[in-house]
Nucleic acid binder design. Structure first.
Length: 272
DNA sequence: AATGCTACCTGGTCGC
DNA sequence: TGCGACCAGGTAGCAT
């Protein structure tokens, strides 16, 4: 579910617990993608959320005790905020209760997400953070950087967009949407991209992701931001999940690259 | 070093 | 209505 826009939307919904102090922590599932650190509960209790931020698709909750809680939503993870009428749902793995009665819940049917806690000062040394490429919405993402990264690569651009070590934040849905917007074929090797393609690509990355954030994240099946609002970007997908539909006189087709679905319109995405 | 593939896990949908 | 096959937003870790 969660690509950069969904994570960004989730984070906005978490603002309600900024500066709130943690009263209780319940861990119902010990192992998600990784084992939840034994010390996690102890470090969270009676600490206060001092900052809420995003690094790529990682949600970072900085605490006032010099630790940071890291949450990754994986494929199906969600954070919800409840108050008063809370009942534990299936797949609610991790529940944080604040002194102001707000309740933060991590729900993840497929358990591909994870939760970690580290000293804030060593956050950037964590391998999964350290190896991330430039954030898709960072101003540092420019044509010089991207060209350097891809100009000798045989890998198709669709796959390059999914490579978090090059650009972080883009996932399988927005990769298709971005390439359609840029009129670039997903099959194009990095080395075959001209600098003009790369400039267009960066423009489309920003345009598509910002638009998705404005719409509150995507809505594949039932995506909701943490305050329960339904994201509504799905209606704005041009090609993702639209196999067989027409755009003008051309059909959207679906192919599989590296085991992932790609949707595109060959006649439009012709690199011209 | 780069790259391609599998595994992790649950649930929804589709065809029979 | 039931059952199996297949698909789904991500990425670590392995083999090549």
């Amino acid at each position: 579910m969660p690509e950069l826009p969904e994570v960004e939307t989730t984070i906005k919904g978490l603002e309600i617990v900024r500066n709130q102090k943690i009263n209780k922590v319940n861990i119902h599932t010990n192992k998600l993608r990784f084992k939840i650190p034994n010390s996690l509960k102890k470090k969270l209790l009676n600490s206060k959320i001092s900052n809420i931020r995003r690094i790529a698709k990682y949600i970072i909750l900085d605490l006032d005790n010099h630790y940071s809680l890291i949450i990754h939503l994986g494929m199906s993870g969600r954070l919800k905020i409840d108050q008063f009428d809370f009942t534990r749902d299936k797949h609610d793995h991790f529940i944080v209760v604040f002194y102001n009665k707000k309740i933060l819940t991590f729900n993840d049917p497929r358990k591909f997400g994870f939760i970690d806690i580290v000293k804030t000062i060593s956050l950037m040394k964590k391998n999964y953070i350290l190896n991330l490429g430039i954030d898709a919405l960072s101003k540092k993402l420019n044509s010089k950087y991207l060209d350097k990264k891809v100009s000798r690569s045989e890998v198709p651009i669709k796959q390059i967009l999914l490579n978090q070590k090059i650009i972080s934040g883009i996932g399988n849905i927005y990769a298709s949407e971005i390439l359609f917007d840029a009129k670039i074929s997903p099959l194009t090797s990095g080395k075959d991209l001209k600098i003009s393609h790369i400039i267009k690509l960066i423009f489309s990355i920003r345009k598509i992701l910002k638009k998705a954030i404005m719409h509150g994240g995507s809505s594949i099946r039932d995506y909701r931001s943490s305050d329960g609002t339904l994201g509504n970007f799905q209606s704005n997908f041009k090609v993702y999940g639209k196999e067989g539909m027409f755009i003008g006189k051309y059909r959207v087709i679906k192919i599989v690259q590296y085991g992932r679905s790609t949707f595109y319109v060959p006649n439009i995405q012709n690199n011209k």
